[in-house]
Design a binder for these strands. Sequence first.
DNA 1: GTCTCAACTATCCAAAAGGATATTCCGCTC
DNA 2: GAGCGGAATATCCTTTTGGATAGTTGAGAC
Lengths: 206, 206
Amino acid sequence: MIRVLIADDHVLVRETLGAFVENAGGFELTLVEDLDAACARMEETRGYDLVLLDYQMPGMDGLAGLSRAMEANRGKPVAMMSGVANRKIAQEAMEAGAIGFLPKTMGANSLVNAIRFMAMGEQFIPVAFMNEPDESGIDHPLAGKLSPRELEVLGGLCRGMANKEIARELDLQEVTIKMNVKTLCRKLEAKNRTHAAMIAKEAGLF
Amino acid sequence: MIRVLIADDHVLVRETLGAFVENAGGFELTLVEDLDAACARMEETRGYDLVLLDYQMPGMDGLAGLSRAMEANRGKPVAMMSGVANRKIAQEAMEAGAIGFLPKTMGANSLVNAIRFMAMGEQFIPVAFMNEPDESGIDHPLAGKLSPRELEVLGGLCRGMANKEIARELDLQEVTIKMNVKTLCRKLEAKNRTHAAMIAKEAGLF
DNA sequence: GTCTCAACTATCCAAAAGGATATTCCGCTC
DNA sequence: GAGCGGAATATCCTTTTGGATAGTTGAGAC
């Protein structure tokens, strides 16, 4: 029997999740509704084979709650789950020592397998979740602020072109490119063209 | 019963893997030793719930064999496994449509779970595998060619610093930095400092 | 010891980049 | 049509880069 503790403040989630896992067989389940209760149960029982924490739940306070739970569970696997969290949060959770991260969009059957997986000490994150387009990048905080022309020039910078070359390519005068570069640097808060190019690259613009 | 086909040219791997999966229960296993045999079995049986292919096996020819197997299995899950492949290959395999990628370093128990997972159509790659340092980056075709000093200077470039600033930081003369930049550009085949910085960034050096 | 090589330094020069200001041209609004 | 703002241009100037050539130093090879 795999001993699992699930902590989620939504009754609905807790119950349906619990029912599904129970039904799959081989699990001894405990359900609680906040972090305090979860830690208390861990202390009592000297740790579960796997603890599943909702990312946003009374007492969690982001990843601080994760650390608390990991301590209470005596180093045995603790995973996070969330209906809204994005890839970035998942990665931070893993770096903080979580054994896995489950988006609630996951199919219930897959979820049972994931639980088995993590209970035996294997890290787990759904591949689809890791590959989904990074939301923070969709509305590039940069691209919106730059004119089309400036984007073209920035593209030239990223290819290591000189102002003169960019000017030829865009059929403009060199001075104009200089201007563009200057405003680019201002908008991107870059010290110079090289810095601007790096910022663009960092943001994944090119 | 989950119907699984495992194709690997090493008898040892095939047998131990097979024994382990068989032992876990719930699987109907078929073992073959090359891609041709695998495809033949898929055609005969109208597809397995999951097909596991060794990355280097007679008939595979890299990822070409994967495509062939996916077709033969009528769109049902096909995964790759390998004892030597790195992250890059794994990603390519996933992009080519593999349902998962298993390094042979994986624990046998985890492996059984992974098979269950993939058989129900969920993508799977071990997190530890994805997070391991990218081998292609260890011996950066670049890093090896550059002296430690040049790497420091390149770091400065990537932060958009002027020669003078880098010189102050490294406690050298500006002319020296100029030299370093010049040789950097030569070694990286860059047109100028901006280009050099972009190449470094592209290679993941900073 | 001498030789060699790499890293650093020194001067000098030309080109590119960066910055300031003013002008023209165009499309827009009022 | 007057007024306005953005994009492109022109002129002028300073700083930074890029490049060539040559001299110094220190470590290691012979």
